[in-house]
């Protein structure tokens, strides 16, 4: 029996990159995809409609957490076995999709994260991002007892159990690290595998130095409070 696989593409003001990303995804017949247009203020909605791309348009901007959760609720509704999160800005290489799915089925884990750092890859991030990643790696080893080299990676695949869980409860902002802590502490199996990441095709990173301090503080705070109390 073939499993139903959904690719969730959260998109906020991605008019430059969205067509390229989705056209790549449409080459994979075996996977369905859905673009979650998170209340974009640019022409993202018109572009999605004009190209007849599969999409859900949120009437208001919910932020990344609310947008991705919409994808999980969609996956839950339509009975998908696996859901893959893939960013619309072209950073995540669709070539890795087969690899993610194959590894996921082989290892039988609950969440598999695509990592840029397991082996040497072409990715070069800003130094603030790298410091943040090292910090989160340490935090996860300490609190969740898992060694994740790329905890902020948004390129990840989850199984049905996690889809159902995320459909009910998903953090509002900066969800990547927090969900790893939650899943690991609930006894779900979280592992990672090597993927390539490209430089973004358009738009700017949403994480400024000020925000990364907030990100680190927020995740630390909630991970500690929600894990131990």
């Amino acid at each position: 029996m073939t499993s139903k696989i959904l690719i969730i593409v959260p998109a906020y003001n991605e008019e430059q990159a969205i067509v390229g990303t989705v056209q790549q995804l449409e080459q994979f017949d075996e996977y369905d995809y859905v673009v979650i247009n998170d209340g974009s203020t640019d022409r993202t909605k018109e572009i999605l409609e004009a190209h007849n791309f599969s999409h859900v348009t949120l009437p208001l901007n919910l932020g990344i957490g609310g947008a991705v959760q919409t994808g999980f609720r969609y996956a839950e509704r339509f009975g998908y076995d696996y859901a893959i999160q893939l960013d619309a800005d072209g950073q995540h290489d669709p070539e890795d999709l087969h690899h993610l799915v194959a590894e996921m089925k082989k290892r039988d884990v609950d969440m598999l994260i695509g990592s840029r750092f397991l082996e040497k890859s072409n990715y070069k991030g800003s130094w603030t991002r790298r410091v943040g990643i090292l910090y989160f790696n340490y935090l996860l080893r300490l609190i969740a007892r898992v060694n994740i080299t790329d905890p902020t990676s948004g390129y990840r695949i989850v199984n049905r159990r996690v889809i159902e869980w995320f459909a009910k409860d998903y953090p509002v902002d900066y969800p990547e690290v927090e969900v790893i802590v939650k899943l690991a502490r609930k006894g779900f199996k979280v592992e990672e595998t090597k993927v390539e990441m490209n430089a973004r095709q358009g738009g700017a990173s949403s994480i400024t130095p000020g925000k990364s301090v907030y990100y680190m503080a927020k995740v630390t705070f909630f991970s500690l409070i929600r894990s131990y109390i």
Partner: peptide, 17 residues
């Protein structure tokens, strides 16, 4: 309220689709 609004926004989006 925020949580409720989030769920409603998602439901509206599904219905529109």
């Amino acid at each position: 309220q925020e949580h409720r609004i989030k769920t409603l926004v998602q439901d509206v989006a599904f219905l529109q689709r």
